[in-house]
Design a protein around this nucleic acid. Structure first.
Lengths: 130, 130
DNA sequence: AGGAAGCTTTACGTTAACGTAAGTCGAGAC
DNA sequence: GTCTCGACTTACGTTAACGTAAAGCTTCCT
């Protein structure tokens, strides 16, 4: 229960990722497990960071962006400037996501109308009208 | 006015694409301009197809998908089975797009609530709660 | 000993849609 | 002739996030 250190396998099961993914994140300096000989052992800190990384992925953050955000956070600079940057990054991402959704909605409407109106795709998939 | 044949440069301006793009599409067998010596000349047919290709891109179709769709169309099999496939492909894509939008909306809601609720991102970017 | 399991490292492969560089060629301009 | 312009071909580079293969430790079990 709530072990202090997890093996790579346990981590994979806990977070539903592959070993390759964890090693990859490590190579990108997103996490940094300790070593027992040559085996990796993940601390609570690693688990926390991985949680944030995966959450960030759901939001569409790139790994590199997450690394920077985590580094900011890491500096313990939670009271001032750095924190604001984190929030700003999040707001920016949110705006991007909303725009992306809007564009997607436009494309959806357009395609749907092509399908409905053209009765048989003759509208969307015929060569340009003469 | 409505010239019969366009050079690659004219095509680029008309459709706002680069020469590389046109050659690339040609290499992928999406278009097939005729040759005057070694120079490419784009027919009305090419222009029609390019219009469809770009339209498809807006809908998120991959080039390979568009190639197949164009080929189906090309067989003149516009009355029967092939047409249905085209329509089916479009409907499928539409469904994908709608799902993608829904997921995006979920992520947006989640991120937005993190921002609003946590007051200062403490919710989204703090290590997992103890 | 002698595996088998599970971990490790190294490093090439994958995918899409072009970008970009290098070198060539034919057609006018001068 | 020589220059220049635009077009051409060939082919390697780019990006993200891992997948996957190859081959070598270390244990643990028998």
């Amino acid at each position: 229960m709530d072990q202090e250190l997890l093996t790579i396998r346990e981590m994979c099961e806990a977070f539903d990722v592959t070993p390759r993914t964890l090693r990859f994140y490590e190579s990108k300096e997103l996490i940094s497990p300790i070593r027992d000989g040559q085996k990796r052992l993940y601390t609570r800190r690693d688990r926390g960071r991985l949680t944030l990384i995966l959450r960030g992925k759901r939001f569409g953050f790139a790994l590199e962006e997450m690394r920077q955000l985590l580094n900011l956070y890491d500096r313990g600079d939670q009271k001032g400037e750095q924190l604001k940057r984190t929030v700003a990054a999040a707001r920016e991402r949110l705006a991007q996501m909303e725009q992306q959704r809007d564009e997607l909605n436009e494309a959806i409407d357009e395609l749907r109308s092509q399908l409905e109106a053209g009765a048989e795709m003759l509208a969307a998939f015929r060569p340009a009208a003469e």
